[in-house]
Design a protein around this nucleic acid. Structure first.
Lengths: 242, 242
DNA sequence: ACTTATTTTGAACGCCGTGTAGTAATTCAA
DNA sequence: TTGAATTACTACACGGCGTTCAAAATAAGT
């Protein structure tokens, strides 16, 4: 009977309700796409009024922003753990693990992918800062780590076309790069973004249905592409392909 | 007697109104994103009632489908003409021209890009057939032509990991490939899709705002990536980069 | 028990897509 | 030319949406 919840049972309830709102929103999104994230539908599902939700999120876009942060963070975390399950001795396999984890997450959670990487929802404008940006930075630094591990071999294979400066890139990313990999040149950041784009392209096409009709086995195409990517970084990885 | 409007002035007016609806929809989309394509807003803009639009399009999704076809077709046409402005003697430059045209179109017309490649609009489900699919096929065959032109050199650089059959791919695409390039193996279709994904990835990230904060010059990164792509097809193209 | 802060309600406003019923205009046939 | 059929359109209604706001209900602090 006695209450061990210190001063604030209210804060506890609040957190609980907030979590329920987010969970309900994710459930609706999984069922009906990102557009199914409707405050009224959430409230109906939870047995409360639409207006009550405004005690927890100032606007629907705020809720969406929070969800993006959650979903993105979860995706990145799964990619990180997939990568960390592979020995650092095989950088190519680590890149492959990351790529396959990201694609796997996208396929299991296509609405989440649309939420994070697409037009999240009718009139949504992404905020400049917030948990979403943090997750995105985490994704980029994860890729940067992978590129950095491959850099000695990868550098020789890059065309030295354009010269980049540190100021060409996001300060937070640059800070991470310079702190962890002092010998890395700015070009490696450009390469990181290119790797990101390459991992993203086929998955985006697939999730949005542009690949389904054209190729019966998008997974094979994607693995080929990732094999080529790994090879282009000077890491001949083939063992984990089968 | 007067035969200039065959039998039907009505059909003429109809076509004209249809065009005006589409134009208004595109205008609204350019101004406020794909979600701004609202029948009521279009009707308001045109001085008629929302219900009247239903004489021209059975549903809003039908209108969106038509717009997707139009926009996609225009984009592909611009890529084709950019490609055709480059001599066939330089396949690498033709690929580069296609890629830069596509990115240029996306940047000039980001809402169109979202319409075609993203979640077009709240609860839209893409139809299996229609002008959109036709444009998509045209885009793929355009890429296939480019890959085919590079194939002799490109084939040697591909890892022979997975074996593809013709049945792995869309019949229409296969028909085009076999008709125009009898010596091309099925693997070339997989490579075509991979090239597509590679051209798409960075642009998608850029259009949806994931690149803007991280790199100040996405164009340079994209050109590097396309240089690498061209090189990976065995076509050392550098002339048109500067 | 009284005060204060927070949460929730319920109704409203203005959007949206979509139907339906009726009206006016056009086309076609006799 | 007249009558019937097709077409374009208006007006209105329905339900859903995000958002706001005053008032009521609930919890916390004193």
């Amino acid at each position: 009977m006695s209450e061990q919840q210190p001063p604030n049972r209210r804060a506890r309830l609040r957190e609980q309700t907030t979590a329920e709102i987010k969970a309900t929103a994710l459930k609706l999104m999984a069922a009906g796409g990102p557009d199914a994230i409707a405050l009224r539908a959430i409230a109906r599902e939870m047995g409360m009024t639409a207006g009550a939700v405004y005690s927890y999120f100032a606007t629907r876009d705020d809720l969406v922003t929070t969800l993006i942060g959650d979903v993105y963070t979860a995706a990145v975390a799964s990619a990180e753990s997939a990568r960390d399950a592979v020995s650092e001795a095989d950088p190519g396999a680590r890149i492959m693990a990351w790529a396959l984890a990201m694609r796997g997450w996208a396929l299991e959670n296509p609405e989440g992918f649309r939420l994070v990487y697409g037009d999240p929802v009718p009139g949504y404008q992404a905020p400049e800062e917030g948990p979403g940006k943090e997750a995105e930075l985490r994704a980029c630094t994860g890729l940067l780590d992978l590129v950095a591990a491959a850099w000695p071999k990868a550098a020789a294979l890059q065309s030295d076309s354009r010269r980049y400066e540190w100021t060409d890139f996001d300060p937070a990313l640059v800070a991470h790069a310079q702190a962890d990999f002092p010998d890395l040149p700015p070009t490696a950041l450009a390469l990181t973004l290119r790797v990101w784009g390459r991992m993203h392209g086929l998955v985006a096409l697939e999730i949005y249905g542009h690949l389904r009709a054209l190729a019966h086995d998008p997974a094979a195409v994607y693995r080929d592409e990732m094999d080529d990517l790994v090879a282009s970084l000077g890491l001949g990885a083939r063992a984990e392909a089968e």
